[in-house]
Design a protein around this nucleic acid. Sequence first.
DNA 1: TTGAAAGCGTTACCAG
DNA 2: CTGGTAACGCTTTCAA
Lengths: 356, 356
Amino acid sequence: MTKKARQADTVNEPSEGAVGRRVTMDKLAELAGVHKSTVSRALRPGTTFYQSPTAQRIRAIADSVDFQPDRYAASLRTRRTGTIGVLVPRLSDNLQAVFYESVVRACTSQDIVALVAVTGDDPVAEQHAANALLGRRVDGLILTSTRVNGEYPAQLAQRDVPYVLALRHNGTDHSCVVSDDRAGGYLVTQHLLELGHRRIGIIAGPDHASTAVGRRQGFMDAHRDAGVSVEPDLVHKSMFRWQDGYDIATKWLSSANPPTAIFAVNDEMAFGVVAAAQTRGLDLPGELSIVGYNDIPSAARPPMPLTTARMDIGALARAAVDSLRARIDGEQTANRTIPVTLVVRKSSAPPSFSAR
Amino acid sequence: MTKKARQADTVNEPSEGAVGRRVTMDKLAELAGVHKSTVSRALRPGTTFYQSPTAQRIRAIADSVDFQPDRYAASLRTRRTGTIGVLVPRLSDNLQAVFYESVVRACTSQDIVALVAVTGDDPVAEQHAANALLGRRVDGLILTSTRVNGEYPAQLAQRDVPYVLALRHNGTDHSCVVSDDRAGGYLVTQHLLELGHRRIGIIAGPDHASTAVGRRQGFMDAHRDAGVSVEPDLVHKSMFRWQDGYDIATKWLSSANPPTAIFAVNDEMAFGVVAAAQTRGLDLPGELSIVGYNDIPSAARPPMPLTTARMDIGALARAAVDSLRARIDGEQTANRTIPVTLVVRKSSAPPSFSAR
DNA sequence: TTGAAAGCGTTACCAG
DNA sequence: CTGGTAACGCTTTCAA
């Protein structure tokens, strides 16, 4: 018998992995001189019994021996695991990392755990990951993947799997938690128009991302309301990557009649635009105003603090978790929208005379 | 009875949360005309029985009905959960996000799940998080938190909790997976010395982070080997944040005799240095060479692609998972070191004459 | 090789 | 209010 195994002195020694805790409800019941079922009741809030002296005494004993119930055993009975799954395309993207971190925090305080699956934007991988998570018996799913427009959510609904769409939505679903992208796009564009810009380019993201579509809609609406027409050449679809911002900005800036301002629908791409402009030696923001979206941590940094739209990602994550919890409990939930504010920094200014 | 619950047609209806799958081994056994224990055996590789026609037939049936065993029930018997816990300070840091993502990928392929806890560098929160994870019965822990020098790992060892230290190590432990920080620091410094720099500043990170200490050691060793003395004023401790790089660089650059090159022990801080230099209107890399560490995705981007040291974070994550798995299986493991390479980009160059 | 039976640590039902 | 008991779905000894 190894030294390591010594402290587990049952004959039928559990092979390995029996980490830490040893106290069971049975032992606790013995200690308290009651039946284990009584212990079980004493530990679950909500009943009137929970308040009784007996129950309090039992809990005191439980605390004193640092009792931790075995959730696996409990889950076997209750069919609930106290876990949720979160599907994200990638964690190398700051916004998604922060979102997931916020979800984890929100969950921790409610004693639930959030399992993540990284899908890399691949619909097949996404499905696979979701199934793996479901195989792990998560109680529900938070989906942030880009291509939620597909049939996948419908499948989930059909299987009675509770889920919410976060940072994304599609037209049909009533379980979305998003920021007000249209309003955000509107705010940004209005800001630029008020500064005097009349040729504003938008690096608009992909059509399959509802966030991008909403921001573009806001861009269009702001132009319409201001009576300014949008130049079709200055509306450019893209992915969400830095490189897209860099490439598209480079193209525009080397054209005969470049825009005086560029709205990139996320900060990453806006940084790409900044880099493209700097590479060409442009004076910022005089010769080119640049606005992003999301207000990621690096957006505020010198030498070119970025004007951008901000949402409270923590609030969004909490709303998503709350919404999912409600759905797991069988309640209906409505869509939720988180407000967006404009953060004006150094990267936007009136167009210079020469650039006009 | 709600429409939702309809498909579960047992009288004793499980309250909620019974997501998806319904097939149990018992049902499967019925289908195959064998006993459930036989099914159980047919499903676990490694035995000779696993190869037998009977076993293959059973697995075929299992596949056809999309059988997924209930790991919670299994765990109740085996005392193993197939989960590990990962403690990270924050996911908003790209390196840590990518590390965790890599751990998740490594785990997924081995059918284990990685639960993350975000500690925010707070030792108390860390302990709390670890206990929560342990309460969830994770089989082991990967620790990347900064302050592993404390007594916490020893406590874990005492409780027979398998763990590995990743991205960090302390002197005493034999379960570390790290990159070769001293070698990396040496490479960077040697590169700068060979370019002709003689006044090199180092923004050295905190003393409680072994990575930082290793890199600084490499810095010192390279100087010693080159016969160049280190100016004490140009060795500056810090945290790991962008702001630290910015502040310290700003201080140095406004001094009477600024360094001609700065080595920041991570890329974030190196970007802070870049920003500080740009804010002061310095010509880069002519007037100041800057080198970082980690080669995060944004390091390669224009307009100032960063010279930096690169390690294979994916390999490191895989090594950490492998090492932990081995420890969970009761094996001893030695420390593992991942090699580091130098990536020379635009931000380092010989010192200009005027700066010398 | 296979079947039977005994748990793993909970929860939930049913009596008292 | 409490105790007994039967699951939950799986693994694992022990016999056959």
